[in-house]
């Protein structure tokens, strides 16, 4: 029974990882790609790690998997944030059909 639950978590995790990768290819610009990749890949990888935890329970491997989930949840959004901010600061444009860019407007306003 445990094995089946673990397998379900791992399969769902891999599926979300796959969606994230598809998003990485299909989305039009850096920011949208970050959206797809951070969300799906974070949950997908957490799903795989949680499956490992279900399989091994509270043993050395299982607890390490849980800790990995914790670190992943803390670091993945920060790295996405850093990438988005870095891309914007170095002048990567938004997709041409984007609606608005308040960040650029405010930065231009600050420079004047």
């Amino acid at each position: 029974m445990n094995d089946i639950i673990a397998l379900i978590f791992i399969v769902v995790g891999i599926a979300f990882d796959l969606f994230g990768s598809i998003g990485l290819v299909r989305m039009p610009d850096v920011y949208n790609r970050l959206q797809a990749s951070t969300k799906c890949v974070t949950l997908g990888t957490c799903g795989i790690l949680f499956g490992v935890f279900v399989k091994f329970g509270f043993s050395a491997a299982g607890v390490k998997a849980l800790l990995c989930i914790l670190f992943l949840l803390l670091t993945a959004p920060v790295s996405a944030h850093a990438l988005a901010r870095g891309a914007h600061k170095s002048g990567v444009k938004l997709w041409e059909k984007s609606v608005c860019d308040k960040y650029l407007e405010d930065e231009a306003g600050n420079k004047q």
Binding site: F19, Y31, L94, V99, Y103, L104
Partner: peptide, 20 residues
């Protein structure tokens, strides 16, 4: 969030309307 993004990614028309 994940289900939402997965739908957007897999949707043939790519229903996005992005901006900051």
């Amino acid at each position: 969030a994940n289900i939402d993004v997965a739908i957007r990614v897999l949707h043939p028309k790519l229903p996005i309307n992005p901006g900051i």
